[in-house]
């Protein structure tokens, strides 16, 4: 058993090595990579939102290579059935020895890329999201556990909403982070073009494995969070509710629903990871602030007025953080 100091040190080094390897293939997108790794360390799933061609698949593939984990990719379409994802019982064997046997779907993997998840029917979405939550599927009355570590990275295309089935709030809440994949900068784009059009393409080398990931998750859970910091996280969540007395004026005006308790849980978990990455042994309020946007942006439901005024969830999250920080005054005013 390692000492706390050693655990933290090992965590940071391992995390950095994985990031480094992934970054070999995924040029730029530092925050996206870090967000995905944080979700991985927190044992949670990620929803990526971005335009096609921004390297989402590459990211998952690279991650699987760096972690030596199995990787699957499912392209969600309207005709995709739940069994297509979770697996089904099929008649197997020959002669009189035929019997039903479970044929696992693509979800039985360590890293799953659910591409354009909003194009599948709600039925299929629900089946997958249930598997994400339970980390197991049931077929023919038998429960089948999904191997650990398990990370789903679902993607959404913010444009081309025609014929899509937007994920309901309850299902969005299952995702730990919603990470926005930005268009790369000019420099990054140049590097991407150069790296991908030549003869040699950088390939990530395995620097970790499933066991490493499980250990990372264990260390994360050991990081303490002091009560004032925890209260800060709760304040952030409470301030996202328009009917709360702690909510800022903008939230009352533009927000229809606030974050669920999963939001507070996600903040605490993400804060732990960020604390370790910062070389600390405790969670700070700054860690929560850092995690607030990816944690809360998909948990806040905007009303029509916000849409009309061009207010985004990120605007509100920013305002919530300001508001809660302002309330968290120095107890000794001199």
């Amino acid at each position: 058993m390692m000492e706390p100091r050693e655990q933290a040190q090992w965590f940071r080094e391992t995390f950095e090595s994985i990031r480094e390897e992934v970054s070999k293939a995924v040029i730029g997108q530092t925050d996206v990579v870090e967000g995905v790794l944080v979700a991985l360390a927190a044992n949670e799933h990620v929803l990526l939102e971005g335009l096609p061609g921004l390297g989402k698949t590459l990211l998952v593939r690279s991650l699987s290579q760096a972690l030596s984990l199995q990787f699957n990719r499912v392209q969600f379409t309207p005709d995709l059935m739940p069994a297509d994802i979770t697996g089904t019982n099929v008649l197997a064997g020959e002669g009189g020895a035929r019997s039903f046997e479970f044929r696992p779907g693509p979800i039985f993997t360590n890293l799953l890329l659910a591409d354009e998840i909003n194009r599948a029917t709600p039925k299929t979405q629900s089946a997958m999201l249930e598997a994400m939550q339970e980390r197991a599927t049931t077929a023919g009355g038998k429960r089948h556990a999904i191997p650990q570590p398990f990370l789903v990275m679902a993607t959404q295309n913010p444009i081309e909403q025609e014929g899509t089935y937007p994920l309901p709030e309850a299902q969005l809440d299952r995702f730990f982070f919603k990470i926005l994949v930005p268009f790369p900068s000019r420099e990054d784009l140049a590097r991407i073009v150069t790296a991908t059009t030549g003869n040699e393409t950088a390939q990530p080398q395995p620097v970790a494995n499933a066991e490493t990931v499980l250990k990372l998750r264990e260390i994360v859970r050991n990081v303490p969070i002091a009560d004032p910091v925890l209260q800060f996280a709760i304040s952030l969540v409470m301030a996202s509710h328009p009917d709360s007395s702690d909510a800022p004026e903008e939230v009352r005006k533009y927000c229809r629903y606030g974050s669920s308790p999963r939001g507070a849980q996600a903040l605490a978990l993400a804060g732990r990871v960020y604390a370790l990455l910062d070389g600390r042994y405790h969670v700070a309020k700054d860690d929560l602030v850092k995690a607030s946007a990816p944690v809360l942006r998909h948990r806040i439901v905007l009303n029509f007025e916000a849409e009309a005024d061009g207010i985004t969830a990120d605007n509100l999250v920013e305002r919530i953080v300001e508001h809660v920080r302002a309330q968290d005054r120095d107890p000794i005013a001199v």
């Binding site: 706390p4 050991n222 990081v223 303490p224 969070i225 002091a226 009560d227 004032p228 910091v229 910062d278 600390r280 042994y281 405790h282 969670v283 700070a284 309020k285 700054d286």
Partner: peptide
Amino acid sequence: RDRLTSGIELEAAGHPF
């Protein structure tokens, strides 16, 4: 970054960290 706040509380709770 809440070092003192956390430290005082962890000390009181006897946390490994």
